[in-house]
């Protein structure tokens, strides 16, 4: 496309371009394949996978907020065995690296899911979701304490034959401390950011809008927070970062790359427009072309470099 070299490399994964869907905003790809050719993506990231099937939270699970939304899906998924048997094989046809998002309630559960995925040939990397705000037990509590985060990452690294990206929670006071802890525990890369804990109240009914009361805030409303966190972490830790949080345009993607991300994921924007990922990709390529940028790699961390 366009004479711009869009390829990037992340923890040994070679991507033909840096744009992928964010976990949970793409299911397992079947529905999206009706809207565009998934082989155009840089990578595919599927919904969180747990050991057992999960039915998720009661409804309402979603609410709109200014330039964003709250969700409390609660990790609804068919369980790792069915994901391996029924969901991953069909993604092979697109010839694009597949990243499986892994969630759990205990360290043992994360380890067992990672072990089973390691026996499947149909993926290229794991993304450890230690940052889901929408399940009572598990998810985020692993991602808000550096010691627990390091423990789960270390345990998964010991069994995984695939590179492990760790998805960080923004619901912390010191994201750099967390990033350092998971880097020291052996993470191969970082994904950031997951959703921010938020809430809306229906003032007529005098109660929270979501059945779970609080939920995860995503969309353009959180973009400045994501950019700031990626900027800070990329300067402190040398792991590659998949950046996300409110990306809706090619220019947003540029901002994330310049902040220090090596690739970007598009989440909520898929709900606004099913073709959001490929639209962002095209706009990113056009942005580079218009400014004479020959390779997107040149943009990575550009905002943090000293001097002209």
């Amino acid at each position: 496309m366009s004479g711009v070299d869009l390829s990037v490399e992340l923890a040994g994964l070679r991507l033909k371009n840096p744009v992928m869907p964010a976990s949970g905003c793409f299911a397992f790809g079947r529905e999206m394949s009706r809207w565009y050719d998934l082989s155009r993506l840089g990578a595919i990231v599927v919904k969180a996978t747990t050991l057992e099937p999960r039915s998720g939270n009661p409804v309402p699970r979603v609410a709109e907020t200014p330039a964003g939304m709250l969700n409390a899906i609660g990790l609804q998924n068919p369980g790792v065995d069915r994901v391996i048997a029924e969901e991953l094989p069909h993604l092979r046809q697109y010839g694009v690296p597949v990243i499986v998002n892994v969630a759990g309630s205990t360290v043992e559960e994360y380890v067992e899911v990672a072990r089973r995925l390691s026996d499947s040939p149909d993926l290229e990397a794991l993304e450890l979701n230690i940052s889901c705000p929408n399940v009572k037990c598990g998810g985020m509590h692993f991602g808000t304490d550096p010691r627990t985060a390091a423990e789960v990452v270390g345990a998964v690294k010991r069994v995984s034959r695939y590179p492990v990206f760790v998805k960080l929670s923004p619901n912390v006071t010191d994201i750099v401390a967390l990033a350092r802890a998971v880097a020291d525990a052996g993470a191969d890369g970082l994904s950031m950011i997951n959703t921010l804990l938020g809430m809306r109240i229906d003032v007529e009914r005098r109660r929270p809008v979501l059945a779970t009361e609080a939920g995860g805030l995503s969309g353009p409303a959180i973009k400045p927070i994501a950019v700031r966190m990626i900027y800070e972490v990329s300067r402190a830790v040398s792991l590659p970062i998949i950046g996300m949080g409110g990306i809706v345009s090619g220019e947003d993607a540029v901002e994330f790359l310049m902040a220090g991300a090596s690739a970007v994921a598009v989440g909520t924007a898929n709900f606004v427009k099913p073709t959001a990922c490929v639209d962002v990709l095209e706009e990113l390529a056009a942005w580079c072309r218009d400014r004479g940028v020959r390779a997107v790699r040149e943009l990575v961390g550009a905002a943090g470099r000293m001097g002209p």
């Binding site: 529905e31 979603v62 099913p274």
Partner: peptide, 16 residues
């Protein structure tokens, strides 16, 4: 009727 995120089957927001 349920509240929808995507409307296209990918977010699991609208379940019944």
């Amino acid at each position: 009727e349920e509240r929808m995120g995507c409307g296209i089957g990918v977010c699991m927001g609208c379940v019944h």
